[in-house]
């Protein structure tokens, strides 16, 4: 019995579709039958069971310019009700990579299995969401080997298997929720017995590796330095006027410290949902040490205290949001000429 054929729609840009270069970068999305451009060689590598039924192409400026463009492209892709969506390879081309990643991400959100191909330095790698991204070469001169990697990855993904990093997967692996046959307690006892039996590799949760953070250089002259106070202890003005979330925060806030030398308990309180806030509410300086910071400022130990403090609630916060807060805080503080920050962590 022959396995059912896998229907593929291939996404490429205007250049590889033969429409034109920069002059045609604004061209809107178009669907054509079958494989074109690099899709022809890809089809040969895919063999008989995986079939490119259509190609959608679009200008890079158009595709990477707006979220609506991605939805337009997706609508064309879905016309053929594909089993697999392949985008690229985009190599190191930034706009093309973004478009490939976003098309694949949007297709995945609609329940389609998707695969985008690009170089690991392409900014699109971070935009792939839940889609799988596979490594390609630096430029079109590496088209041959890139298509070979892509075709092999397509066969794996089309078969319902996750792509591993060894097989060329880029970006962070995704965890998906499934319903196991047996409850966690029973599986945990199985795992204990496996480990007792000498299987030291068995686990359902691969250990995460946290990103390496390169420490900032040491501050050279504290007496000239602008210092900021930041916290994930959810200290906000009384009544929480901006409604900071007490758990799973999705945003951060800033509050002015201009002309304020201390934080009165009746004017500030913590709304953190992860610990008892009794002590913070008795004395807000237990979370944001403004009193002592002002003292140090007056003594000239620092150049000056930044005019506002930044705050979020670090409680069940996703690492993605926490990473974003960190990036945004660093950028915001740098713009304000802050060169050092004390982050109080609860």
């Amino acid at each position: 019995m022959k396995a059912p054929m896998t229907k593929i729609v291939h996404y490429i840009n205007q250049f590889f579709a033969g429409i034109g270069g920069e002059d045609a970068a604004g061209s809107p999305p178009v669907r054509v039958e079958g494989a074109i451009g690099p899709g022809r060689r890809l089809q040969q590598l895919l063999g008989d069971d995986l079939h490119i039924v259509a190609t959608v192409h679009c200008g890079d400026d158009y595709a990477s310019g707006s979220a609506d463009a991605v939805q337009e492209i997706l609508a064309l892709v879905r016309q053929d009700d594909p089993d697999l969506v392949i985008a690229g390879p985009a190599f190191t081309s930034g706009r093309y990579g973004l478009a490939c990643a976003r098309v694949a991400a949007a297709a995945t959100e609609h329940g389609l299995t998707s695969l985008a191909a690009m170089h690991e330095d392409n900014p699109g790698v971070d935009e792939g969401g839940a889609a799988t991204i596979v490594r390609s070469g630096v430029a079109a001169r590496e088209m041959g080997s890139s298509l070979e990697t892509l075709a092999a990855a397509a066969a794996i993904v089309a078969g319902g298997e996750p792509l591993t990093n060894e097989q060329g997967r880029l970006g962070r692996p995704r965890r998906q929720v499934v319903r196991a046959d047996r409850p966690a307690a029973a599986r945990a006892v199985d795992l204990v017995l496996a480990r007792l039996g000498g299987d030291l590799e068995a686990t359902e949760v691969p250990l995460p590796r946290f990103e390496q953070v390169t420490p900032a250089a040491a501050v050279e002259d504290l007496a000239q330095t602008v210092l900021a106070l930041v916290t994930e202890g959810a200290l906000v003005p009384e009544g929480n006027p901006d409604r900071l979330e007490s758990a799973r925060a999705t945003r951060w806030l800033r509050y002015s410290l201009d002309g304020i030398d201390s934080l009165a308990p009746d004017q500030y309180g913590s709304i953190h949902g992860g610990f008892s806030t009794v002590w913070a509410n008795e004395d807000p300086h237990r979370i944001v040490p403004l009193d002592v910071a002002r003292e140090l400022e007056a003594e000239g130990a620092i150049g000056r205290l930044h005019g506002e403090y930044l705050v979020t609630a670090g409680n069940g916060t996703s690492v993605a949001n926490a990473r974003r807060f960190g990036v945004e805080w660093a950028a915001d503080l740098r713009r304000s000429e802050v060169r050092a920050a004390i982050l109080t962590s609860t």
Partner: peptide, 23 residues
């Protein structure tokens, strides 16, 4: 705690010696 799209590091504080966990 892998985030809404499942791509976040899923264990906030992993063990350093032990390695076996059930999800």
């Amino acid at each position: 705690m892998a985030g809404t799209d499942g791509t976040g590091p899923s264990v906030v504080v992993p063990p350093s010696r032990a390695t076996a966990m059930v999800s």
